[in-house]
Design a protein around this nucleic acid. Structure first.
Lengths: 331, 331
DNA sequence: TTTAGCAATTGAAAATGGTGATTGCTAGGG
DNA sequence: CCCTAGCAATCACCATTTTCAATTGCTAAA
């Protein structure tokens, strides 16, 4: 079945109206905008419903977009107009601010987006798993404490503050320097093995409290491996502001998902460009949608995503994300 | 007016029953436990209400503890019995695990507490504001990127990944080493001033892209200052599980408080020991209570707090916190 | 001092009724 | 053949009423 021009207009109007008002749209509301009677609209709505683009809550309720309807809207009806002046200006001040390191600019811009849209933003840096250890550094502090730092070739740092009572710190430093030579260059993911089989015996020889030191090492590397992703949220609680999440159960479910590492993986797989995943496709919850894109700036890879209710301002969000992506790529 | 032994028993029972069931306690429920009729209990309840320890929701509802009632319970009725076997065992495995650095053990134990109690836990490390800069370190990475690390004497580290296209990295490193000599020893809080008046001119002389480098420095130190507190939450969303927070508005209010830095300050002031702040005294919301304590382990200072609904298992939480405190002090 | 008994009070849940919004359908008109 | 006016039908929503069970305060007797 072919979708007529008028049907497209009606569908577009319904999506945008519903996004604004969160209320089913009636034939009457529509006929004020288009020049025809409500009955005509109703006839068209019946067809659009048969096509699967519209839904009713009950016999005599107005229509709202179905998941398919949103998809159709995003693919065919959305006008890729420029950002509104306001949105644009705010983002510009961030990206044109030379003082910001890129990662900070991204984070700041996502905070901004969360603020102005009331959705949730996520930056997902590339896994540090593939990093290789570049350097192990020890720094003596006061009172038999040392600072242990692990640095990777991509510039990630993990550090730990260790208290070693009754230990000759000089000796510890010598030992660590020895270890340093042995493990530099090892991929982070393989390091714990190496630690156990190659390093453990050596620490034992040199340091009295070898148990403590060894464990500190082991821990530091473990948390490195666990922290396989560098993830930052902005506006995590914004869902509380959305009327469709006014019920505790849904909020609970969603916030739990945000803590769960799985959400990250779901978000990661993706082709290039700015993509929209609606409802069930979001892999998070059928009530939310995700707009996301990858970036790669001189080896610094990552994904940016905006998570909002299915009733999302797709046009605006896609444009915002496009703008950010362009700014990163052109920088 | 004197509180009789029986009145104490009744109050204790009501508190513990209400904490369990979240429902007003009726005279009938009580008389099953004590050997007397419901009418007798009712007479006593009238007296306890006059003393301000009990409350009614309406004419014919059962009684529940008032804020004052909880206070009286915590101060006079709570039996400081040992931890139950289960709670104890779980905590032991954390603290007797020699492999954990103290700060990690604390964090792990709070995660555990949040899990088993469904309350929210907070560790608040001492402000890094009083720290002095110990070392500035630069490490060249691939592709004209450098890693900038700032290390304080107390062992805090802040790092930034900077991309400096078209710049002689060797020159940058020389410059930074120069800067290093000039600012080591400066308190973090004063560093931005020094940067602006003493350091800025120097970087200008040595580095082409001085703007970029200078700003990176400035940023790194700024975020150091802003991060005046080292704060970690566990079970932030646990409030969603508590029946008294089944309304979005309250949850919103509370989660906003958690993000707000003020909550930290409110929590910080405190004398020694494990203290209980009920309802309005919590300074957070009249619906929550806070149990907290300070620790000081070899210069590593901080505060631990458990935040829960006013209807809290005070006995259990106080005992848990006591156990942790003892373990830190004795370690 | 304790207790049995009873009227009084209230919230919560279920039942009821009215209102307004909106639809689907029908029949007539361009 | 498409559009539209008109109208009964449908349903959510709100307010009101009814019913029910829980629990209290009070009184009078043990």
């Amino acid at each position: 079945m072919v979708v007529t021009k008028r049907q497209n207009e009606i569908l577009k109007f319904i999506v945008e109206e519903y996004v604004k008002t969160v209320k089913p749209v009636s034939s009457n509301t529509i006929c004020k905008k288009l020049n025809c009677s409500s009955a005509t609209i109703r006839n068209e709505m019946v067809l659009l419903e048969e096509l699967g683009y519209l839904e009713k809550n009950h016999y005599a309720s107005g229509r709202q977009p179905s998941e398919q309807g949103y998809k159709y809207y995003v693919e065919n009806l959305m006008t890729p107009k420029d950002l509104t002046g306001e949105d644009m200006l705010k983002l510009q001040t961030i990206f044109h601010n030379q003082s910001l390191v890129l990662s900070d600019a991204i984070e700041k811009s996502l905070q901004l987006i969360s603020e102005i849209t009331n959705y949730t933003s996520v930056v997902l840096g590339k896994s540090s798993n593939e990093n290789k250890l570049k350097k192990v550094e020890v720094l003596p502090l006061e009172d038999n404490r040392i600072l242990l730092m692990l640095i990777t070739d991509k510039g990630y740092v993990e550090y730990k503050n260790i208290y070693l009572p009754n230990t000759d710190i000089e000796e510890v430093i010598k030992t660590v320097n020895l270890i340093n030579k042995m493990i530099v260059g090892t991929p982070i993911s393989e390091i714990n093995k190496k630690l156990e089989y190659d390093i453990k015996p050596i620490i034992g020889k040199y340091v009295k409290q070898h148990e403590m030191l060894y464990n500190a090492f082991y821990d530091a590397f473990s948390s490195f491996v666990n922290k396989t992703n560098d993830i930052h949220f902005a506006g995590k609680n914004n869902f509380l502001k959305q009327p469709e999440f006014n019920n505790i159960e849904k909020v609970k479910e969603l916030l739990a998902k945000f803590d769960d590492a799985k959400i990250i993986n779901e978000i990661e797989e993706q082709n290039n460009g700015v993509n929209v995943y609606i409802g069930k496709d979001s892999e998070i919850s059928e009530d939310v949608s995700v707009v996301k894109t990858k970036y790669n700036y001189n080896g610094e890879e990552g994904t940016i995503a905006i998570i909002g209710p299915k009733r999302m301002e797709y046009e605006r969000v896609v444009n915002l994300l496009n703008y950010i992506k362009e700014n990163i790529d052109n920088q």
